[in-house]
């Protein structure tokens, strides 16, 4: 399955790009993170502490156990600090 990934804040800085399209067999967010971590050290650096990562599926906040079925856009970022 093809997914559009987006990265923000220090996740973006550690991975070194704002986003990319990836091909993956992952079925959940947690599996996608494991898949990315195995690809290169920069992903390992970004995802080494899963508790520090938030995820949005098609622009809705979600959770690591969420299924990727039908999802097009996955965004990874740190806890939000607006306001």
């Amino acid at each position: 399955m093809k997914l559009d990934l987006l990265y923000f804040a220090w996740v973006r800085e550690r991975i070194g790009e704002p986003g990319e399209q990836v091909e993956t067999n992952a079925t959940t967010v947690a599996e996608l993170i494991e898949d990315l971590r195995s690809r290169a050290p920069r992903y390992e650096a970004a995802f080494s502490d899963p508790k520090a990562i938030r995820v949005a599926l098609d622009q809705e906040l979600s959770t690591p156990d969420a299924l990727l079925t039908g999802v097009r856009e996955v965004a990874f970022f740190p806890p939000m600090t607006g306001g």
Binding site: M80, G82, G83
Partner: peptide
Amino acid sequence: LKSRAPFWK
């Protein structure tokens, strides 16, 4: 909005 809107400082 402080912790649920996607902003990062």
